[in-house]
């Protein structure tokens, strides 16, 4: 098979095969006694990118030995510059989930909430990923509450 076709096929599989990864789930109390529940979802995400892994892959597939060595050096520098525990791929903005509380408050006009589920997940496509924080929950319908 020609190399170009191989590359296109490889890239297609890589793009199509986005793996979903669940890191953390927290389920809160669900109160169904006060009326009907209207579900809502809030999702924030950020581009995750493992540059060190990318450089490592580059070093492995590089044709010339000098390029391979350079990329190995790059991977090493990146690895030692970004020490620390990682959940998913690293991101370049640590405040992407800063607004979730404000969004949850805004989304429910009745201001009565229940059953909040917090999920930390990711969709991976090779060394690139979408790092996601999603909050799912229910608004307690005020009218229903009054009817009851």
């Amino acid at each position: 098979m020609p190399i170009k076709l191989k590359s296109i096929l490889g890239l297609s599989f890589l793009l199509m095969g986005g793996c979903s990864q669940l890191h953390h789930v927290h389920i809160g109390d669900i109160d169904q006694s006060q009326g009907t529940l209207t579900p809502f979802t809030i999702q924030v995400n950020e581009l995750g990118f493992d540059l060190a892994k990318t450089a490592e892959i580059g070093a492995e597939v590089a044709k010339s030995s000098s390029t391979s060595e350079d990329l190995e050096l790059v991977a090493f520098i990146l690895a030692i510059s970004n020490f620390g525990p990682k959940t998913g791929n690293p991101v370049y903005n640590d405040a992407y989930a800063a607004k979730v509380l404000a969004e949850v408050i805004k989304v429910c006009p009745s201001k009565k909430l229940t059953g909040l589920t917090s999920v930390r997940e990711a969709t991976n496509v090779g060394p690139v990923s979408g790092e996601v924080v999603s909050i799912k929950g229910y608004c307690i319908n005020n009218n229903q509450t009054n009817n009851i």
């Binding site: 109160d31 540059l51 525990p85 990682k86 959940t87 690293p90 640590d94 429910c108 917090s118 909050i135």
Partner: peptide
Amino acid sequence: LSACTSSIHMSQVDVGSNDANNVD
């Protein structure tokens, strides 16, 4: 490029039950 990477491990939102879930 290596500057300032981060990782958010978890972000949990919780709301009170019964009377306390009426968010004022």
